[in-house]
Computed example of a mutant assay.
Amino acid sequence: MKGKIQTVCGWIDPASLGKTLTHEHLVADFSCYWSEPSWHAPHLDNVSFTMDPENLGFIKQYPYNFLENLNFHGEENHMVEELNFFRQNGGSSIVECTTLGISRDVGKLKKISMATGVNVVCGTGYYTANTHPSNMDSLTQEQLVSTMVNDITRGADGTDVRCGVIGEIGCSWPITDNERKVLQAAAIAQSETGCPVIIHPGTHTDSPAEIIRILQEAGGDVGATVMSHLDCTFFETEDVLEFASLGSYLEWDFFGVEVSHCQWADIDMPNDAMRIKMIRQVLEEGHADKVVISHDVDTKHRLMHYGGHGYSHILLNVVPMMLNRGISQEDINKILVENPKQWLVFK
């Protein structure tokens, strides 16, 4: 396995990875984020998901109040359309971070990859505590390691489709006992297989550093680990730079989200211009070899079919903005090609 990247269709040479989105979802169910509406809009009473023009503004503002908006199963044809468009615009690979607990289906991922020619790297492990299996308390660390290693070396979900990344491993703030157990198991599975890791941290400035400490103590490879969702974790450049010194990859992955209201945390979400500004500052401080970006599409309304930005937004819109804001083409190539390649290679 060493020196190769594992996709749902098998091993590939790192040189063939190309432009890569490091954190996306193609087949998943995020109903764990559903909540009762906190607003009153009589014309939307009892509506689960309709994309009529009069509803679209509410769905963009409150995406997690619409249950059907949170389920990608049944959208496979639209995903093929999306990824064909992504490939036409220079995209080559996607890391699909759906784990156990949010309705992973590696068989569907393989079909989508084969239909489009886009490399798909799928994940193993467990998401946040509210999605854990009912018997998680009784599962041992050794059992969790065995599940992850099996997904990587033999095949996931009863198939021969093997996972090429551990994660996204879900952590809350404060981290729960079972999330800590999963995180430690992920570190052990990484040390046994050489597989890269990607983390979903809690929405607190201290969460990423705590996770890194737990990973290191359990024998994980921080240098082969991506810390996701920095858009909603760090809001001051000094905090990002302090965390960057710990050595993980730094991921801004909500590109395309331009609504400041966040339904699942008491934070103000940045827009794309603010993300680019912070990334430029991090690059200027010498961390170009550790930055990756993505969209983390987890709702239907963000798909092009439903009027959203889709998976090509970074290539079509963000890259020109980055160039216009003084980020060099060399650094963009690192962010989209070289850094994902270095991270995804089995060690």
Rank of each mutant, 00 (worst) to 15 (best):
Lys4Phe: 12
Lys4Gln: 14
Lys4Val: 05
Val8Ala: 07
Trp11Ser: 12
Trp11Lys: 13
Asp13Leu: 10
Asp13Ser: 14
Pro14Lys: 14
Pro14Cys: 13
Ser16Cys: 08
Lys19Cys: 07
Thr20Met: 07
Leu21Ile: 04
Thr22Pro: 00
Glu24Asp: 05
His25Val: 03
Leu26Val: 13
Leu26Pro: 00
Val27Glu: 04
Phe30Thr: 05
Tyr33Gln: 11
His40Lys: 14
Asp45Val: 06
Glu54Gln: 13
Phe58Glu: 04
Pro63Ser: 12
Glu68Gly: 14
His73Asn: 09
Glu75Val: 01
Gln88Thr: 01
Gln88Ile: 00
Ile94Thr: 04
Ile94Cys: 06
Ser103Gly: 04
Val106Gly: 05
Val106Glu: 06
Lys110Ala: 13
Ile112His: 08
Ala115Phe: 01
Gly117Asn: 06
Val118Phe: 02
Val121Cys: 01
Val121Lys: 02
Ala129His: 10
Thr131Leu: 05
Ser134Cys: 01
Leu139Cys: 08
Leu144Thr: 04
Gly158Val: 06
Arg162Met: 10
Arg162Phe: 01
Gly167Pro: 00
Glu168His: 08
Glu168Pro: 00
Cys171Lys: 03
Pro174Trp: 12
Arg180Gln: 14
Arg180Phe: 00
Lys181Ala: 09
Lys181Trp: 06
Leu183Ser: 12
Ala185Leu: 03
Ala185Thr: 04
Ala186Asp: 02
Ala187Asp: 04
Gln190Ile: 01
Ser191Cys: 02
Glu192Ser: 12
Ile198Gly: 09
Ile198Asn: 14
Pro201Tyr: 14
Gly202Lys: 13
Thr205Glu: 11
Glu210Phe: 02
Ile212Arg: 05
Glu217Arg: 13
Glu217Trp: 01
Gly223Met: 03
Thr225Val: 06
Val226Ala: 13
Asp231Cys: 08
Cys232Arg: 15
Glu236Trp: 07
Asp239Leu: 03
Asp239Lys: 14
Val240Glu: 06
Leu246Gly: 00
Leu246Tyr: 03
Leu246Asn: 01
Glu251Ala: 15
Val257Asn: 14
Glu258Thr: 12
Val259Phe: 05
Ser260Gly: 04
Trp264Ile: 15
Met269Cys: 11
Pro270Gln: 13
Asn271Met: 06
Ala273Asn: 03
Arg275Asn: 05
Ile276His: 05
Leu283Met: 09
Gly286Val: 08
Gly286Arg: 12
Thr299Met: 13
Lys300Tyr: 00
Ile314Asn: 08
Val318Trp: 05
Leu323Asn: 07
Gln329His: 05
Gln329Pro: 00
Ile332Lys: 11
Glu338Thr: 12
Asn339Thr: 03
Asn339Tyr: 08
